[in-house]
Design a protein around this nucleic acid. Structure first.
Ligand SMILES: [Zn+2]
Ligand SMILES: [Zn+2]
Ligand SMILES: [Zn+2]
Ligand SMILES: [Zn+2]
Lengths: 142, 142
DNA sequence: ATTCTAAATGAAAATCATTTTCATTTAAAA
DNA sequence: TTTTAAATGAAAATGATTTTCATTTAGAAT
């Protein structure tokens, strides 16, 4: 948590009990949630907590690299913890079964990129890779 | 267009003047548009045309593989023509500058997939690759 | 060509995730 | 302790998308 407090300070965000609680919840779960799900959790811990506070904080956390926003089913968005806080290039993979999320920085996209640039005649500037699968835990249970 | 009419028939969708017009517009532009942008175009051609008709048709066209839905800025969605109507695995690339969209089926993902599966211990079921770049035309103009 | 039927459509209202407003509270700097 | 900008709650606003329902229409049946 100290690591995350540092990131907040570095980005001039105040360290509030609610922010700490949100981050802890993500850290303890390694799963992705909707803002509404986070709100449901937070309502148990704080007697006053607005949904807009959740939205505002999730958005800021994504901006500073603590969270990642993934698009789920039905045009809804989810947030999950991103451990790659060093801003290094990386991608995410989620478990379809338990909603676990994790990031990985292995990305040998260069070769594929060159091939695609050749056939499409595009100069590729950004690549977004998003993976879905079954995590080891869920695989074992099945 | 005959090709697209066939696809409509195969999927038991009626061939209406509005549907033909929407598809033609995509075919002639090779760009991605919001439902609202399509509506603006259609209002010039039909004195009665509801936005919900646009939404309904774009959604259906995506389902049968004529269009692809891409997420743009600010949680808004765009649709672009997809020439790979054979349902073969493929991806899309868009031009940041002129909003051109094109699909390509070259996808050497297998090797990268194995590497990622090893380090993440996930069994990868789906991969989504989405590319942004500058098309040849725009590159030349720059 | 005419009739029939399910699908398509327009207009308006509903939905619902997300954002904004504004008055109040609070973290943390002075 | 005082000060100040940031954070927050509550409520309203926004805005994209969906739904409802009465009417129209494409295409099949006759
Ligand atoms: Zn799992
Ligand atoms: Zn990469
Ligand atoms: Zn271009
Ligand atoms: Zn692929």
């Amino acid at each position: 948590m100290e690591k995350y407090k540092k990131i907040l300070r570095k980005n001039k965000l105040k360290i509030t009990p609610k922010r700490v609680s949100i981050i802890n919840y993500f850290l303890q779960n390694n799963k992705y949630f909707t803002p509404h799900q986070i709100w449901e959790f937070m309502k148990k811990k704080f007697k006053k907590i607005g949904l807009s506070t959740i939205y505002r904080n999730l958005e800021k956390f994504e901006k500073i690299g603590i969270l990642t926003k993934v698009e789920g089913e039905e045009n809804r968005f989810y947030y999950g913890i991103c451990k790659k806080t060093n801003k290094k290039h990386h991608h995410h993979i989620i478990c379809i079964s338990c909603h676990k999320i994790r990031d990985f920085d292995l990305c040998n996209f260069e070769q594929l990129k060159k091939q695609i640039e050749k056939i499409t005649e595009f100069n590729i500037k950004e690549h977004h890779i998003f993976l879905k699968g079954i995590c080891l835990n869920c695989e074992r249970e099945a």
